[in-house]
Structures are given as structure tokens and as C-alpha cells.
């Protein structure tokens, strides 16, 4: 028996629409759930006071510091490395088998689970180089973790600059670096910045790679070799060890808001980029 196309059409709309709706409901539920329970806890006081009794009460000030400094270290190291590398790969080398292998390699590294970076950072930075659990070890580990992503997104942004711009620039007597500086980078910049912002977002939310390299000290770090705790690590410890559900919710809310802010600004930049282009 053949079902009339009109009914398959309706059935499809119901099933596909249902799947979309379910997806949206789940995702919105997660955010609303966390914010609803966390926002009442989250306040100026919560953000700026020190935790007491392992975080059972008090605020999350030191973890706020950790959450700012760790991604900052990572970004300061990984951005120039990543951007220069992508400029070199896309503007100074010709497309060969070697560049294809490099691209595949960075793709694979971008897909490596963060726990493996944590394992590497722990053995290499913390133990072998003797940095101990520290901001430096954690920042370096995060830098290594986001480097492939930055290389990839920068390269995509650079490749999106029309080839004709390069031709025009070269035909007007520009050298490679002049072309990069005056035409390529200004046009690729929003794309590169978006990639960097997304990496910051990822660093803020990262737990597995951080907990084993930066440690989980609740003191306010005074040097790069001090251990520190980020909000995600703090949240993980509060939740997993059942220390304080209330403070866990508060921290989670702060975490989500931070990550969403970073990502929203990335999208805002991207959109400005696209609308400027067309």
C-alpha cells in the first residue's frame, strides 16, 4: 500500500519538527535550570569574597582570578604562535603534500580529548620540567590544547580572503609581507579574533586539562608558579564531592554566564565581519 505524499509530508514535518523542538527544549532547560538555581546565589558578594570551609560557604573570588589568568596565559602564548603559523602555511608555502599532511595533523590534534593534553601537561610541565601544579603549567597546557584550533580557524579566515586581493596587491608591487600586513590580516582579522574568542571560551570551561596541571589550591595565586583553581574546577569539586550544592549552582551560573558572554561576543564579531563583506 502506498501512502499518499501529503501524509508522508505531514509525518515528516511532525517528526523533524519534534526533534528540533526536543533539542531546543533540552538545551534551554540546561541553561534555565542552572541559572534559576544559581542566580540567587550569584551576587557581587559571592564573586568577590573568599571561599570558607573548602567552599562550603563564602564566595569564589580566587577561582575568578584563576579563571581569568589561565586562559590569558594560554591566549598570550597560543595566539601569536597560531596566527604566525597559519600565515606562514597559507601565504609563504605552496600547496603541497607536506602542507596537506600538516593540515590533517592539526585537525587530528584539534580533536584530541583534553584529558590527553592534561596527561601530557601533568607529566611534562608539572613533573618533568618541575613546574609543579601551577598557573604556568596549566596555562602552557591550555595553550598547547588550543593551538591547533587557533591555527585552523586562522587559516580558514586567511583562506577566505579572496585570491584576487592577493593578486592585486602583488601586481601593485607589494612584497609578501606587505600583502599580509595590508590586505590579508586586516581582512582575516575578525575571523581570527572569533577563533581566539572561541578558544578562550573553551579554556574557561576546560576542567580535565586544568585540574591536573594547575591544581586546585583555593589560595589567591601570587606568582605564576602558584597553584590555582578555576571556576570549572571549583564547580567540579563542589559537585563531585558533594560539598555544597548551593555554591555549586552559583559557580555553575557564573561559569555559564562567562562562557556565553565570550561566545556571544565572538558571534557578534563574526556577524559584523560577514555584513561588512557583503
Amino acid at each position: 500500500m502506498r501512502i499518499h505524499p501529503r501524509y508522508t509530508q505531514r509525518g515528516a514535518v511532525v517528526i523533524l519538527g519534534g526533534a528540533t523542538l526536543l533539542t531546543l527544549v533540552i538545551l534551554i532547560f540546561i541553561i534555565v535550570f542552572i541559572l534559576e538555581k544559581g542566580l540567587p546565589v550569584l551576587g557581587w558578594n559571592f564573586l568577590t569574597s573568599n571561599p570558607e570551609d573548602m567552599g562550603r560557604s563564602g564566595g569564589i573570588f580566587p577561582t575568578l582570578i584563576g579563571t581569568i589568568i589561565l586562559p590569558l596565559i594560554a591566549i598570550i602564548i597560543a595566539t601569536p604562535l597560531g596566527v604566525f603559523t597559519s600565515v606562514y602555511l597559507s601565504e609563504y608555502t605552496k600547496e603541497t603534500r607536506a602542507t596537506k599532511i600538516i593540515r590533517f595533523g592539526t585537525d587530528c590534534l584539534a580533536g584530541i580529548p583534553s584529558i590527553i593534553f592534561g596527561l601530557f601537561g601533568y607529566i611534562f610541565f608539572v613533573i618533568t620540567l618541575g613546574m609543579g601544579w601551577s598557573l604556568l603549567a596549566g596555562g602552557l597546557t591550555l595553550a598547547v590544547m588550543i593551538l591547533p584550533t587557533i591555527i585552523r580557524t586562522s587559516e580558514e579566515a586567511i583562506r577566505a580572503v579572496p585570491k584576487s586581493y592577493r593578486e592585486v596587491s602583488f601586481s601593485l608591487g607589494a612584497s609578501s609581507w606587505q600583502t599580509v600586513k595590508k590586505v590579508i590580516l586586516p581582512n582575516a582579522l575578525p575571523g581570527i579574533v572569533t577563533g581566539v574568542m572561541l578558544s578562550i571560551g573553551r579554556s574557561i570551561g576546560e576542567t580535565a586539562a586544568v585540574i591536573f596541571t594547575a591544581g586546585s589550591s583555593l589560595r589567591i595565586p601570587t606568582s605564576l608558579l602558584d597553584s590555582a583553581r578555576t571556576m570549572s574546577v571549583h564547580f567540579y569539586i563542589l559537585a563531585r564531592e558533594g560539598i555544597s550544592a548551593e555554591n555549586a549552582y552559583g559557580t555553575a551560573a557564573a561559569l555559564i554566564i562567562a562562557v556565553l558572554l565570550v561566545n556571544l561576543s565572538a558571534y557578534w564579531l563574526m556577524n559584523r565581519f560577514i555584513s561588512k563583506r557583503s
Binding site: 528540533t20 538545551l27 570551561g205 576546560e206 580535565a208 564547580f235 555553575a252 555559564i256 556565553l260 558571534y267
Partner: peptide, 23 residues
Amino acid sequence: IKPTIELLAAIPSVVYGFIGVMV
């Protein structure tokens, strides 16, 4: 809707885990 859904890729995995435990 698409960027909204993409935004959710940014939610830290510990938060998803927490929802798993609590809900």
C-alpha cells in the same frame, strides 16, 4: 536558532555532567 545551538557547544562539560547527576 543555529548559532543558539552552537552556543551550547561552549557550555562546559562539567555542567552537562552536573545536570546528569542532579536530574
